[in-house]
Design a protein around this nucleic acid. Structure first.
Lengths: 361, 361
DNA sequence: TTTAGCACTTTCTTATCCAGAGTGCTAAAC
DNA sequence: GTTTAGCACTCTGGATAAGAAAGTGCTAAA
């Protein structure tokens, strides 16, 4: 355990470094942070903090810089969760009050709002489709060879995709399809849409198989590929001093581009069971390419339903306090509004009757 | 007009510079490019080419570098349109043979293929929705307060959006809606969806107005916002030597991020009437931020229908020859396949009967 | 018209020096 | 035992200079 003075020193160094990006000297702590000891005393403490691994030294005659562990200690023990101004709170609220029609839109808005408020790069991904359960599948004939499938999940997610056939299909076939799919798939998770269906269909109705197969193919393709990814403020990161280093800048672009989808989802959707906000500092990230970056994720849930994940990616010298405060503010607002419970899929709701919360059951 | 030797010199300088990114000396032209004159002679020619404005000199004792005008001359007069290997052609063909269900998917695939082949950053945008004419509008009730609208255009574009209501709506209302919209909008361009409709509806049926208004709002929102933008290989650009300059790198990120959508569309959808491939070199670009970059656009058309635009963005020192060759190859393949004419929207087609081309009319 | 030759210019690299900033340690003060 | 003043030591970063390398432009000759 650190004594109070060491805590104060560590906090001051972290905050000063986050603000200035310059190594922090013992003298500046006395002068700017009101730590009422001589610089020599502070130097002794700094040496010890370095020995424990909470501080680093770029070179002998430079000031100190927080290590990854130092940031970790700061985040776990010293953080201020209210580092957000009234204006910012109001801005967040106004943004999230926009009328939205789909959960994905909400994730998108939250992603850009978060980037606006924090001035960091944010990435939002849609909810984990795989585990969601199917409520209904609708098929709409758009042309004689063109079919649209709309999947509604119990969590209120809507996913549509288009299937093109090589031959004409009839409304009758579509009706059979609708019956079959709903009969078999209702209540099943989307991940189940692959093999078992085909087998089932095979035995069930042989003559409709040529219709079923392309539908299945396209459905699983849509489920696997179409997880929406939103990104905001990639350019903001380039204004940060650490992006003077070409290597870091390159690395960053590589992370965001290319397999950003897969990469991110793999990383972000990892810790399922714990708190809604997670902080991964520097080399705590599984991916080695992220060793100079920190990621803060926020999983948007409502009554246990996964509604998407929003993340901030920035240098390890990140304003953790600000980011986490903003996330908590967004989280609170989302919770208050209840804009994204299953009323979104159009179930009747009694606006004025606030007496009873009609849950399913 | 340039004499043959000067042309040869200009071409050699452009190509050498594109390859190496280093100013080209008179000596290297003799040694590496088989121009059979002494370096002094070449120097004289180079001085003249510089006087006409086709070459630049970073400083007195450096070699020469093509100016924007120099690249322009090269592109207009000296370009090789077959700068693409058999393997690359095969790769392009294999990529474009993937089964696709929507025109947008084709644009997406073409965008990534182009980036793969050229190693530059490519951007693809969907067709210009605004001018497309409506073939049919379908409404599907997804829940008691949730309506999906699907717009089919004459060019085979499919655009769907979701409208959420504050009150329950009935199938009857939806039917009326369908009748009204199709009656009024068929054959109209999408841009017409805004005011006139509302006025019409107003006089027509007063009691359905509360349903019509949100539908109109959401439809025009969808039309205005949802022009898909695909980007591929942003990270590839960062490997180029010009991206050592932080300013250029920053600029690039700014162009691609933020208002990339608007910016790009404004720039790319400019020259309507001319050829399908356009080259904008350095300060030829309207946007000043692009003065260090060149953009090559390729408008994908079929029977006069706009099916999207694909662009390559890179430094002015770009392999124009390679990019244009690849685009022509993609263009040819797209034309051969006819995968994206209006058969895509499911109209019957006689595969074996190649006798008559059934156009509408 | 072309070319050999050479002076001139500019960049790039390397070395050296010096000021500035900050630490670590020792010995004294509290 | 804790804190502090003082000072030697270390490392960076900017300025300056010198010399090598690369290329040009121009002149005079082929």
């Amino acid at each position: 355990m650190l004594d109070d003075r060491k805590k104060k020193i560590l906090q001051a160094i972290v905050e000063e470094y986050i603000e200035t990006a310059e190594p922090v000297s013992s003298k500046s702590l006395v002068e700017k942070h009101g730590i009422d000891y001589s610089s020599a005393t502070i130097r002794n403490d700094m040496a010890e903090l370095e020995k424990i691994g909470l501080l680093d030294k770029p070179h002998t005659s430079a000031g100190r810089v927080p290590s990854a562990q130092g940031y970790r200690y700061y985040v776990d023990e010293l953080l201020d969760y209210n580092d957000i101004s009234v204006q910012e709170i109001k801005y967040i609220q106004s943004q999230l009050e926009t009328k939205i029609n789909q959960i994905e839109d909400l994730t998108k808005i939250a992603t850009s709002t978060l980037s606006e408020v924090t001035h960091y790069t944010s990435v939002g991904i849609g909810p984990n489709v795989y585990s969601q359960k199917i409520e209904e599948v609708k098929f709409i004939l758009l042309g004689s060879r063109l079919l649209m499938a709309v999947i509604l999940t119990e969590d209120g997610l809507i996913k549509e995709t288009i299937i093109k056939f090589d031959e004409d299909i009839t409304q009758e076939q579509v009706d059979t399809l609708t019956y079959l799919f709903n009969n078999k798939l209702k209540g099943q998770p989307l991940s189940q849409i692959n093999q078992p269906m085909e087998e089932y269909m095979h035995s069930e109705m042989n003559n409709i198989l040529k219709v079923v197969r392309p539908v299945l193919e396209q459905l699983s393709k849509a489920i696997n590929e179409d997880i929406p990814v939103y990104m905001e403020g990639a350019n903001k990161s380039f204004e940060l001093p650490e992006f003077q280093s070409l290597d870091i800048a390159k690395n960053f672009v590589n992370i965001l581009d290319a397999d950003r989808t897969k990469q991110m989802i793999d990383i972000l959707d990892d810790g399922e069971n714990e708190e809604e906000i997670h902080v991964y500092i520097g080399d705590e990230n599984v991916d080695k390419a992220l060793k100079n970056f920190s990621i803060i994720t926020f999983k948007h849930k409502e009554k246990g339903k996964d509604l998407g994940t929003i993340a901030i990616i920035g240098p390890t010298r990140m304003d953790y306090s600000k980011v986490i405060s903003a996330m908590k503010c967004i989280s609170k607002k989302l919770g208050e509004n209840k804009i994204c419970n299953n009323k979104l899929i159009g179930k009747p709701e009694n606006k004025e009757n606030s007496g009873k919360d009609d849950e399913d059951g």
